[in-house]
Design a protein around this nucleic acid. Structure first.
Lengths: 226, 226
DNA sequence: CATTAAGTATGACATATATCATATTTTCAT
DNA sequence: ATGAAAATATGATATATGTCATACTTAATG
């Protein structure tokens, strides 16, 4: 069993407020998992009873709409925690979490975490701040969805993917989403997404080769996103 | 200065976890305001430095989009707290709050509230749960925005207005929004909103008379919202 | 390597929605 | 009450986006 004390990603999450004793406690009760690309961490409606700490990799958080399409609400990566909202509300999860790359995650049972809320105010505060950040993002996202065109949202999303998750040596976006997933992020039909990508390519804004997307003209793309 | 101890709305918010001493403290430092319909409580980007407790009335929380339209994110009414997110994140507000009816609100300075977080775990937990609820709503809302048609969203919104804020004696929706505001809630052009309302009226789903909207056939409206 | 399935691309078309113009009604200040 | 301004309503039209069909490309499997 690896020690949480020595885990670097801890520093990037609310868990950074935990002291030595507390870290030893969770090291004792946590479970580590390896999750392959495409595998599910949990599904919308499931009872999770704890939180997942992402040691490595990226996953998508999505929600099934009534018409059967998967709407991606956000992407979550190394250092972040999954399942906080559901744990605090004491409800089943609202979103599904599916790995976009191979992942390393640790599961910490609810009972352990809930104890920290009572005894470690800095930890509580960190969790609150993190959820508040999510809420702010969600509200901003709602406005985009409501007021921007699909083209603007696609541009915005491509920029977000590059700035938040970086690019490979060849300059292509590190996160590789299928066209369907990308459509699910911007909230449009897969064909519309493909069509607009082609348009962007014709305009010299991006390059496409297979699944790889490379941003060629970031500033123009930013203008397009307004 | 009125006593917070005797204030009933307190029971509906996170403040219900406060004990007698704590209530006396806030009674001592709070400020009560009367806000007229249409007046602003705070504007997006403002530093609020505290929270507002709504004693009576309803307000809209909105955000200006780049194209100049006001997107209404949510409506907030009696018993709820405003400005929690901003206070916890220690950031300017993300949304504007504008009264839809005459309101009674109390302002409690940040310093006072922050103290409770350290000493009253139940209070912290209540605030966290309330923010988690907002986050869940926001995510659900994002999916509606992305995947539903304007017609479905309008139906959904009318139902929400009736179920959450009730109706007058004559059966009309108690909350009266202008067509522009309603359009801002569902994320569409004012003309489109007006047109769809006319359609709904022709279908016998609702009745319109001036600003008053009356739901005539709730079940059909629900089907339309899917 | 061949075969199939999945993903990507594109065309044709239908539909939803935005925009602009204008008429009508309501609201409000004087 | 009366006129002006704002809000609501409706038509005409342009545009964005969704849907269905089909071709092409890539990845996966035996």
């Amino acid at each position: 069993m690896s020690k949480c004390e020595q885990c670097i990603v801890r520093e990037f999450s609310s868990l950074k407020a935990l002291n030595k004793d507390e870290l030893l406690k969770i090291a004792d009760c946590k479970t580590s998992y390896t999750i392959k690309k495409g595998e599910t961490i949990f599904v919308e409606g499931e009872n999770v009873n704890g939180i997942f700490c992402i040691k490595d990799g990226v996953c998508k958080m999505s929600k099934l709409s009534q018409n059967g399409k998967d709407q991606i609400i956000k992407l979550v990566s190394k250092g972040e925690l999954l399942g906080q909202r559901s744990m605090i509300s004491d409800e089943p999860t609202n979103l599904s979490a599916i790995a976009l790359e191979d992942m390393e995650v640790c599961f910490i049972p609810k009972a352990e975490i809930m104890g920290f809320f009572d005894n470690n105010n800095q930890f509580s505060m960190n969790v609150m701040k993190s959820i508040c950040g999510d809420l702010k993002d969600a509200d901003t996202h709602t406005v985009s969805m409501a007021q921007k065109t699909v083209k603007e949202r696609l541009a915005e999303t491509l920029i977000y993917l590059e700035t938040s998750f970086g690019k490979n040596e060849d300059g292509s976006l590190h996160i590789q989403l299928s066209r369907e997933e990308l459509a699910g992020m911007i909230g449009t039909a897969t064909e519309s997404c493909i069509r607009l990508l082609s348009d962007f390519k014709k305009l010299g804004l991006i390059d496409l080769s297979g699944k790889k997307i490379t941003i060629l003209n970031l500033s123009k793309l930013k203008k397009l996103a307004e």
